[in-house]
């Protein structure tokens, strides 16, 4: 089993002495799905952003696809990681001035130096897999939220990533649009994509994840398999959180 991601005692503190992340450690094996859950402000977003260097940390060590980074910022290493790790954001963050296809081919052409026709062909193939190839010439604001998020997934996939990061990918969507995005993510997981997902979607986590990491106040409360976490969480804090989610 090839380990893709090793986090060792990742600690990040904000100026007031509050720890955004407090000695967070976990590992992720290739082809597996890690779901990160926790109340808002618990550090989920901060944690997932450290993986591709959008956030720095103060102590600890991170090994992403064999590339080791620590608190000393090494731009070259971070760039290497970003070329192999895709990310999908809560607010989609599509480039509004570019067409859907241009959004998708931008990085393959500029970062991987691929031919435009080749990048476009691959982009169209990925779009058709998502069932949104008819939108290729449109601009992001002409698409629904769910469609935009699926484009964002395609944009990340266009670089043929070895690891995909999802930062609350369905939180900004209308309820009736959530499933189309979750279905796309489910398909990716079934195809063997290694993923880290920050989400509140319990059903998705139960069905797709291999491991659930529960974070509170920047601390890992527990890491369990979804069967155990959702039926028989070992910690009082986790049970409270799950009860809260159920009520909503």
């Amino acid at each position: 089993m090839e380990t893709v991601l090793i986090a060792k005692n990742i600690t990040k503190s904000f100026s007031k002495g509050i720890n955004a992340l407090n000695k967070v450690s976990f590992t992720l094996v290739k082809g597996k799905v890690l779901v990160i859950m926790g109340p808002s402000g618990s550090g989920k977003s901060t944690l997932i952003r450290t993986i591709n260097g959008l956030e720095t940390f103060d102590e600890g060590e991170l090994n992403v696809l064999g590339i080791k980074i620590d608190s000393n910022i090494d731009e070259r290493k971070i760039k290497k990681i970003r070329r192999r790790v895709g990310m999908v954001f809560q607010q989609f963050n599509l480039f509004p001035h570019l067409t859907i296809l241009e959004n998708i081919t931008l990085a393959p052409i500029n970062v991987q130096k691929r031919q435009q026709t080749e990048a476009e062909e691959f982009g169209m193939y990925l779009l058709s897999q998502m069932g949104i190839d008819s939108h290729a010439k449109k601009y992001p604001n002409q698409l629904s939220g769910g469609e935009q998020q699926r484009v964002a997934i395609v944009r990340a996939l266009a670089l043929k990533p070895e690891l995909l990061l999802f930062d609350e990918p369905t939180s900004a969507l209308d309820p009736e649009r959530i499933n189309e995005v979750l279905d796309a993510m489910r398909n990716l997981a079934n195809q063997g994509m290694t993923m880290v997902v920050v989400t509140h979607e319990i059903d998705f986590a139960k069905e797709v994840s291999d491991k659930v990491l529960f974070l509170d106040n920047g601390k890992v409360i527990e890491i369990s398999s979804p069967d155990i976490f959702f039926s028989n969480a070992s910690h009082e804090r986790s049970r409270k959180f799950l009860n809260q989610l159920d009520k909503n």
């Binding site: 895709g86 954001f89 963050n93 599509l94 480039f95 509004p96 990085a107 970062v111 990340a156």
Partner: peptide, 25 residues
Amino acid sequence: FGQWEAFRSLGLSERTGFIKIIIPQ
């Protein structure tokens, strides 16, 4: 700021991202 994060996460350099993503917007 999400636009900066988006181009960075795609591995684009600061220069390329600035010229192709930030300036046009």
